[in-house]
Simulated assay, not measured.
Amino acid sequence: MRLWPRLLNHIVAALLPLFLTCAVAFAEDQAKLDELFTRLKAAGEEEAGRIETEIWIEWSKSGSPAMDLLLQRGRDAMELGDSLQAIEHFTAIIDHAPDFAEAWNARATAYYMTGEFGPSIADIGKVLTLNPRHFGALSGLGMILEESGKPDRALEAYKAALAIHPHLQGAVEAVERLETQEEGQEL
């Protein structure tokens, strides 16, 4: 029985450098994202597009080559119009890496593409819990709310996305469209 505590000490000692490396990498990733979001707020429209791309690249890093491959396979399936296959790939990622927000976001998009708004909204909720700055998820929520006949709530979602990413093209256009509709109704 005395061997057990010593064995645990050796295991912890062996794994500690790995845990510390992961913690440092996570902190570096967060610092990079913080810097990108700061730049995004101040950027002009053209520069904002480049920064947005950098943010999406960072969000797409799961930390696991296997999960990254599944994410790419799911995205490829969506590009080919096979949303059901995409959902399977994204669900596999979520099963193994439930804290990977981009897998939830990708599955929310795939559900949206199949017209399954309920599961899409549920996944968007998880994305925003894991990553409150996810302007893509907020914009997607706006699209669903707008298509569901809830323009006031859609407008709120789009404006929340724009508070994070002031040049998010789809959201800018949606806000203009919905505000114009709202003004037309007041007359």
Rank of each mutant, 00 (worst) to 15 (best):
residue 172 V to C: 05
residue 16 L to Q: 03
residue 25 A to T: 13
residue 95 D to E: 13
residue 85 Q to N: 08
residue 42 A to T: 15
residue 36 L to R: 05
residue 33 L to W: 05
residue 168 L to R: 06
residue 128 L to P: 02
residue 169 Q to F: 11
residue 5 P to F: 10
residue 82 D to S: 12
residue 123 D to Q: 08
residue 149 G to V: 11
residue 47 E to A: 13
residue 122 A to L: 04
residue 112 Y to Q: 12
residue 108 A to F: 01
residue 13 A to I: 00
residue 30 Q to D: 15
residue 163 A to F: 02
residue 81 G to Q: 06
residue 166 P to W: 13
residue 79 E to F: 08
residue 108 A to E: 01
residue 167 H to P: 06
residue 50 R to S: 02
residue 116 E to Q: 15
residue 158 Y to P: 00
residue 77 A to Q: 06
residue 98 P to F: 14
residue 81 G to W: 09
residue 111 Y to A: 10
residue 160 A to S: 09
residue 167 H to K: 14
residue 83 S to E: 03
residue 147 E to A: 08
residue 43 A to F: 13
residue 168 L to K: 06
residue 46 E to Y: 11
residue 97 A to M: 06
residue 169 Q to L: 12
residue 110 A to M: 04
residue 143 M to W: 06
residue 17 P to G: 12
residue 102 E to Y: 10
residue 70 L to K: 04
residue 133 R to V: 02
residue 18 L to S: 05
residue 115 G to M: 13
residue 122 A to E: 11
residue 140 G to E: 04
residue 88 E to H: 05
residue 129 T to Q: 15
residue 11 I to K: 03
residue 84 L to Q: 15
residue 79 E to N: 14
residue 25 A to F: 15
residue 40 L to Y: 03
residue 27 A to Y: 06
residue 76 D to A: 08
residue 46 E to H: 10
residue 129 T to F: 13
residue 103 A to C: 07
residue 52 E to I: 12
residue 108 A to D: 00
residue 89 H to A: 02
residue 137 A to S: 15
residue 80 L to D: 10
residue 142 G to F: 04
residue 58 E to W: 09
residue 45 E to P: 12
residue 106 A to D: 07
residue 21 T to D: 10
residue 58 E to L: 14
residue 120 S to C: 10
residue 121 I to A: 00
residue 69 L to D: 14
residue 23 A to C: 06
residue 146 E to K: 04
residue 41 K to C: 04
residue 166 P to G: 11
residue 100 F to H: 02
residue 112 Y to G: 12
residue 109 T to Q: 04
residue 64 S to A: 09
residue 143 M to T: 08
residue 49 G to M: 03
residue 100 F to I: 04
residue 160 A to L: 08
residue 32 K to P: 03
residue 136 G to P: 11
residue 79 E to M: 11
residue 51 I to S: 02
residue 178 L to P: 04
residue 102 E to N: 14
residue 110 A to C: 04
residue 22 C to W: 12
residue 89 H to W: 01
residue 9 N to Q: 14
residue 83 S to I: 03
residue 14 A to S: 14
residue 157 A to S: 09
residue 7 L to Q: 05
residue 1 M to G: 07
residue 63 G to D: 08
residue 88 E to I: 05
residue 156 E to A: 07
residue 172 V to G: 00
residue 10 H to I: 09
residue 41 K to N: 09
residue 162 L to F: 11
residue 147 E to V: 03
residue 152 D to K: 15
residue 27 A to D: 14
residue 128 L to A: 02
residue 78 M to R: 09
residue 29 D to Q: 13
residue 47 E to M: 11
residue 32 K to A: 14
residue 107 R to M: 12
